[in-house]
Nucleic acid binder design. Sequence first.
DNA 1: CCCTGATTCGC
DNA 2: GCGAATCAGG
Length: 171
Amino acid sequence: MEWTAEAIEMLQALWAEGHSTAEIGRRMGISKNAVVGKAHRLNLSARPSPIRREDSEARAADTPRPAPAPRVAARPAAAAVESAPTPSPAAPPPRPVTAPPVAQVTRPAPPPPVVRAFPRVGARSCCWPIGEPGTPDFRFCTAEATSGRPYCAEHAAIAYVKARDRREDAA
DNA sequence: CCCTGATTCGC
DNA sequence: GCGAATCAGG
């Protein structure tokens, strides 16, 4: 693979659009390894990795436990329905009266409702890039994005390809 | 087995 | 520098 300036820009553009490395590879006709390798070399490796490579033995001795990870539940509406915890049909365990008297003094403050009032989720502009990123005439598509998609209908058709058989397309 | 990204290492 | 092989997790 000859990494021309154009190729690198395309890689960065697709990378910035959030495509997977394999997807970028497909769109550019190269392997995902090439994409990952180049991205790594370009120091733009910033995508959330599914895995964590760290030796667990070295840090086993001193586990500082930096943060208790206060599970901030965001996402108000979407995709929160199906993961609802099943309420146990059995009766709730009666609190034994022998509970330590000072145990419940410090009640954790109830988390404030994280209801972000989204301005309008369904009516944003298409974010399909027009032109070469970094050049003065670079802009984004001004059409209205379809609901739930970052692109307008026209560009969504280009951006989203059929799940199978997407070996090559309009790149 | 499909996917994901990360790292290694011969070239 | 490159990327296939490999690793590691979902």
